[in-house]
Amino acid sequence: MVDRLYSFFISGGQPRRGVRSFHLLFGDIQNLARTLHEDELLGAFESDLNNYIGRSTSNGFFVHAGVVGWKGRAIVIPGVSHCGKTMLVKEFLQHGASYYSDEFAVFDERGYVSAFAKPLGIRDEISQRQVRILPKEFGNETGVEALPVGLLLFTRYQEFASWKPKVMTTGGGVLGLLANALAAREQPERALTILERVARGAQILTGERGHARDVVQGVLDRLTN
């Protein structure tokens, strides 16, 4: 049985003047990508496949988030793209945290988080294209063990903002996780059970942030004390 069928159409042959030959990617019958560059086609394939797995697997519950490990607990940074979670993950790594993910927090039924450790996708400031960087380039290991969540960090980059976090309630934490979950609509009961377990044991902070360094130092001090 095939769950999802991907079709690649790689343009070939001699280039003709005035004609651009696109590579195409389809997921089932949906056109997912149309590009002149093969690496972009593969990037689109990886992205769609990750999301398909994230919403259809029963082996983990996927939430969009950056995740690092710190002293036996996980720091989870839920958020959509452009909220700056990868920069925070990178900063945590530079402070010695272990790497779990910059895209998905994968929770098990206990509410522990496992690694989804693909290379960090850091955007070039000028071209806005993502550059892939391995965590070991920061001198860090990738986490192996599933960890309980010690901190949920809901934050968004805002120019000139200073980090003045507020403590959120457990319920607020659950709502924040639901807002970034891939399969909450399809599995609401399971989502509530797992995300409640995640939030119950965690500190939950929220606030706008400026530079990632200020947040990370403040958060690590808070977790250490």
Binding site: E40, S47, N180
Partner: peptide
């Protein structure tokens, strides 16, 4: 699920 996607990759 599609709303929860971070963003679309190049070429999508």
């Amino acid at each position: 699920a599609s709303m929860a996607l971070s963003c679309l990759a190049l070429g999508q």
